[in-house]
Design a protein around this nucleic acid. Structure first.
Lengths: 243, 243
DNA sequence: CGTTTTTATTTGTCTGACATTTAAAAGTCT
DNA sequence: AGACTTTTAAATGTCAGACAAATAAAAACG
């Protein structure tokens, strides 16, 4: 691990990159302890605050964890699926909020990905996952449910559908797509009428998964996508002509 | 933006979270300048190094950028698709390398996601994207191509297929799935024979996209998945009985 | 031998300082 | 007055040294 002392600025970024490379290339393995901050400062010929800035960069990416005390230090962190989920969600949410992505584009992507899980989920969903979906559908039908709660339940329903595929890599990849849509979905004020339709389609999906009928699930997802996009379109229309 | 001074450790993490929340919630908008490090230190009642550690965490996630000089400072960064791509790829690669994910699981996820693009890509792929695919197929057929070059070309081919869907959100979500597979693919030593078959399937895909025939594309992708998994299985078999 | 105390190590934080970069302000010359 | 040069101020980048707090091992003690 070497850094170029010629390059002027951002020593901490260079050091972070050097350590990152060492982790990615396998020179540093999971749970291995990095040298202490003082030792790293010596090795890289920089001060301790600079080393610390580098370590914080890595910590922000969940690449290391730190522990205080005598046997403490910075350890190479096993990037768990959970950590990866939340990073993925944060990034996706920001990406959608800070770029002009049309609702249609985001919606299309989300449902295209979700349909990719339909077949696998129809084969593999556990009874537990199916029960979760049924429970969420039940909750969604409760009168007096706030829009936020309805959206959260919607996300939970779709998460269960995705997890039903029994493929953690797939779940990870879709986490962003499903969760990041929630803020966008919140822009649509769900009327009682529109909820009814959505709940009906959710039921069709659950039925399809229960019977292992992937075609029904895919079809219902297509309908759900169309309906969601229509809702968004109507809301946009209303805003244009508020009268 | 407030932090809890009671909680003992990791002030920098709390500060980073506070600023992150301010960005996500829209209190800080793109290209807005944050207060200077000294001012932030005052606001949060901490020292400047602590503030700096917090800022480095945010910089590691491309949430802010910093600029030196009189009118410099930390600015809220517009998270570009490009930045998001590379973060996605890094995270996915690490996730796969640091967890015991079977080749089958990763492969299944990748092709399930890729098939999600097939229909859209058959409708929308540009002539340019099709040309890229044909060019990559041609390259893949060159004798004497190294395994690394073949894999890179394979990735380029699939990237073009995904981008053909004309949905940047979809491209972003799939970047990780496609790129992170490359290290795993490299474990398979492609023989000349296996390349032939892969190239043939690539051609079928390109033909399908050219003719707007999504079914052919999906079918070919299924075949490609099956073939890839068979190759991996054979390699594993050979390793078990090296004689 | 078990419990308590001490000690050493390491991260977390603070203070104060200097270097470097950068753009604006001030000054100077034509 | 206008164009060029110099100065200055503000900000980040870096450093050095110090102390606090946590933690586990070592030492002391009953």
């Amino acid at each position: 691990m070497k850094i170029d002392p010629q390059k002027p600025a951002d020593l901490s970024a260079q050091i972070a990159q050097a350590i990152r490379d060492a982790i990615v290339s396998g020179q540093l393995i999971v749970d291995e302890r990095l040298p202490s901050e003082a030792e790293l400062a010596d090795q890289f010929q920089v001060s301790r605050p600079t080393v610390r800035e580098a370590l914080k960069r890595l910590a922000a990416q969940s690449l290391i964890r730190t522990q205080r005390g005598a046997t403490g230090g910075a350890f190479v962190n096993r990037l768990s699926f959970e950590d990866a989920y939340s990073q993925q969600i944060t990034t996706s949410t920001l990406l959608l909020s800070m770029n002009t992505v049309s609702f249609d584009t985001a919606c299309e992507a989300r449902y295209a990905l979700e349909r990719a899980c339909a077949r696998l989920s129809a084969q593999r969903r556990t009874a537990d996952q199916l029960a979760t979906m049924r429970a969420e559908i039940f909750r969604q039908a409760q009168p007096g449910l706030t829009d936020e709660a309805f959206c959260a339940s919607d996300v939970a329903f779709h998460r269960a559908l995705v997890d039903g595929a029994g493929n953690p890599v797939l779940s990870y990849q879709l986490a962003g797509a499903v969760e990041a849509m929630q803020p966008l979905m919140n822009m649509i004020t769900f009327t009682a009428r529109s909820r009814e339709e959505i709940i009906s389609l959710h039921s069709q999906i659950a039925d399809g998964l229960e019977n292992g009928d992937a075609d029904v699930v895919e079809e219902s997802l297509v309908k759900l996508e169309k309906y969601t996009r229509k809702l968004a379109h109507d809301v946009a229309e209303q805003r244009r002509k508020p009268a």
